[in-house]
Amino acid sequence: MRIALIDPGSGNLASVRRALERAAEAPIDVEIVREPEALIEADRIVLPGQGAFAACRAGLDALDGMVAALYEQVQVRKKPFLGICVGLQLLAERGLEHGITPGLAWLPGEIAQMDPRDAAGAELPLPQMGWNALDFTPGAHPLLEGLQPGDYAYFVHSYAWRGGQPNDLLATTDYGGPVPAILGRGNVVGTQFHVEKSADVGLRLLRNFLNWTPREDTA
């Protein structure tokens, strides 16, 4: 199995590659790529990202032809795709960090700054940083197989998805209210948290992604 790990100029590429290799149940070839042609031979595509939405989008745009190749391989040819942290956020219609930046618009919604409050209405610190529990309906998606509500993942972010479709929301976490944690539609999934830093939960999610065959009728 060939995995294209896209390098948009940010993201824990080495850590993500090691996590994918650890998660695999059979030998895989994980290639860090900056050339759009590399996506043609890939069986699955992973887009990590960290930092600001605008900077990550600029880094992706700087890879000549990559956005068009992503659309062709993921949206047309329906190859399984995983976005991690800002890699998930880039799937939105736009990001509102440091101005308005267009996203890939593969899923409806936008990325806006969080406004977390405790029960008394006091502001919670941003970014949300550290381990937080996942809430989801068991069996709702193959990516969640083997996980239980309450399992912990590692988050670092101040901006989050809002205004999306309920059917695209696969899991949430709580930080002064519900926060989208995993989104997906058809052959596309993404995690707001860092799977590569999420210990056994992250490895299980990656293993599920590697074993996943998206249903054509969910695209």
Rank of each mutant, 00 (worst) to 15 (best):
K79R: 15
G150V: 10
G103W: 05
P80N: 10
Y152S: 08
I111L: 10
G139N: 06
V86Q: 01
V201W: 11
A119D: 15
R207S: 12
P36L: 01
G163S: 03
E21V: 14
L20V: 14
N208W: 02
Q128D: 08
A153W: 05
A68S: 13
E37S: 15
Q148A: 15
E196N: 03
I32S: 02
V16G: 10
R94L: 14
P166N: 04
F81G: 13
L107D: 07
A153Q: 11
P127T: 11
S15Q: 07
P214V: 02
P178E: 15
G164C: 10
P80T: 05
V33P: 03
D200K: 13
G190Y: 01
A14F: 03
A4M: 03
N167Q: 15
A122G: 15
E123A: 15
Q73S: 02
M1L: 09
V46P: 06
I3S: 04
T137Q: 15
A42Q: 12
D118P: 05
D61L: 14
L20S: 08
T173D: 10
A42I: 13
A4N: 05
P178L: 09
A122P: 00
L126S: 13
G109Q: 10
V195P: 15
A19Q: 06
L70E: 00
D61R: 13
G150M: 04
W212L: 00
G150Y: 10
V188E: 04
W161F: 02
F53M: 00
P214K: 01
A52K: 00
P178H: 11
I45Q: 06
C85Y: 03
D115N: 13
V189F: 02
E93C: 12
L90H: 05
T191N: 00
L70V: 08
A26I: 09
L82A: 08
H141F: 09
I182T: 07
S10H: 01
G103D: 02
R2H: 07
D151S: 12
A171H: 04
G95S: 08
I40D: 11
G177Q: 08
P149K: 08
P178D: 14
I111Y: 01
R17V: 08
I32D: 00
N132M: 06
R185T: 12
S198A: 02
L63W: 05
L144V: 07
L144G: 06
L147S: 08
A133G: 04
I84E: 00
L183F: 04
G150C: 11
L143K: 11
L60F: 00
P149E: 09
L90I: 08
L91K: 07
P116Q: 06
L88Q: 07
N132F: 06
F136D: 13
G184H: 05
M114A: 12
A68E: 14
I40R: 15
G95V: 00
I28W: 01
P102W: 09
A69S: 07
L203Y: 09
P127L: 08
V189E: 08
R207H: 15
D43C: 06
A181P: 03
P125Q: 14
Q50M: 03
L20W: 10
A14Y: 04
R17K: 13
Q165D: 10
I3K: 01
P149R: 04
L63F: 02
P214M: 00
E145R: 13
I100N: 02
A133R: 12
R17Q: 09
A219Y: 11
V74L: 02
I182R: 00
A219H: 15
W106G: 05
E25N: 08
T172Q: 01
D200I: 14
